[in-house]
């Protein structure tokens, strides 16, 4: 096939004349030219900024002097930053577990429904994920308002005292996770639903003949068949949630007492608002090792899955 193309174009695998015209005719040259814009975006606006960030993070605040790893050691010694690390982990892990569970339950429930009604319900359940989070978080912010909270109003009708959703540190931590779960659970649901639909019915029939209970079917048929999608979705969501910005920025802006700051919002506060770009860059870069590890596993899962689907 590939050889056929080459022959037809009169080209050759080995450049013989080496003239520009011949080079331009070559298939691989054309292919390379077609990827130049992509390379420019990735190289100029992703790879270059990344390396620039590494350099930036080793300068002093006024960017006049090279100070090595001082920004990193300074951050690690600060109590605020230690709490940022802890809160980022809590935020990401807590939110992803909740999203994965809710998504799993909803996908199963939807899968049970007759296919006619399924579409309608699915349409409604995906709405939180369609609204831009920067916009929907405004609605939550208003719902959490200290004096006008509509949630407090509603729970007051059954006699529960008002909650300081964003004013008290542990409630604020809960609130930012809650909003993230609200926004992200539909994504898990739709991924799991797609995976559920791809499990062949024969497997369940075989399990039923063997006398498997519902729980055993779930444990021995559904979960193994979905394992790859589950791990891809969870890892992907860990990356996105860990690096979140919108929700925390709008809802609490890191408060009260910097207790809800995660890497993204803290980097913004330090780097942009306080004008210490090198320190802000260091805060962001602390995310890198953990993101890189997750990314490698996502890639592995995706490659495995595409092989499975091809095979």
């Amino acid at each position: 096939m590939a050889d056929g193309n080459l022959v037809m174009q009169g080209g050759s695998a080995r450049p013989q004349g080496g003239t520009l015209a011949r080079l331009a005719r070559k298939r691989s040259t054309l292919a390379f030219l077609m990827t130049v814009p992509l390379l420019a975006v990735i190289g100029g606006l992703v790879a270059y900024p990344f390396f620039y960030a590494l350099y930036l993070s080793m300068l002093n605040k006024r960017m006049t002097r090279f100070i090595g790893l001082e920004n990193y050691t300074f951050l690690l010694s600060r109590e605020t930053f230690q709490s940022v690390i802890w809160q980022s982990v809590l935020f990401a892990v807590g939110a992803v577990i909740a999203k994965a569970l809710i998504g799993f339950i909803l996908a199963h429930v939807l899968h049970e429904l007759p296919s006619k009604g399924q579409r309608k319900w699915r349409g409604m359940l995906l709405v939180p994920w369609v609204i831009p989070p920067a916009v929907s978080t405004l609605a939550w912010w208003w719902l959490f308002d200290p004096s006008y909270s509509a949630i407090n109003w509603a729970v007051a009708t059954i006699g529960i005292p008002p909650v300081a959703w964003l004013g008290e540190p542990s409630w604020a931590r809960f609130s930012v996770i809650l909003v993230n779960v609200w926004y992200g659970a539909p994504f898990f649901m739709i991924m799991y639903l797609a995976a559920l639909k791809s499990v062949p019915d024969q497997l369940y029939e075989a399990a039923a003949i063997d006398g498997a209970t519902g729980w055993q079917k779930l444990r021995h048929v559904t979960v193994p068949m979905m394992r790859n999608i589950i791990s891809i979705t969870v890892l992907f969501s860990l990356i996105v949630t860990f690096a979140n910005f919108d929700i925390v920025r709008i809802l609490t802006n890191g408060g009260p007492q910097d207790k809800t700051h995660i890497f993204g919002t803290y980097a913004f506060q330090v780097g942009i608002q306080s004008g210490d770009l090198p320190l802000g860059a260091s805060v962001s870069l602390f995310m890198f090792p953990i993101l890189a590890i997750f990314a490698v596993f996502v890639l592995r899962g995706v490659t495995r899955r595409s092989k499975e689907m091809a095979g």
Partner: peptide, 23 residues
């Protein structure tokens, strides 16, 4: 390059906004 494209997709904007601010 195809693999690199996928990995680039996983780079969150919170990692790059500070150097991009300078750029």
């Amino acid at each position: 390059l195809a693999t690199g494209v996928f990995l680039t997709y996983l780079v969150p904007e919170t990692l790059l906004f500070i150097p991009l601010f300078q750029i």
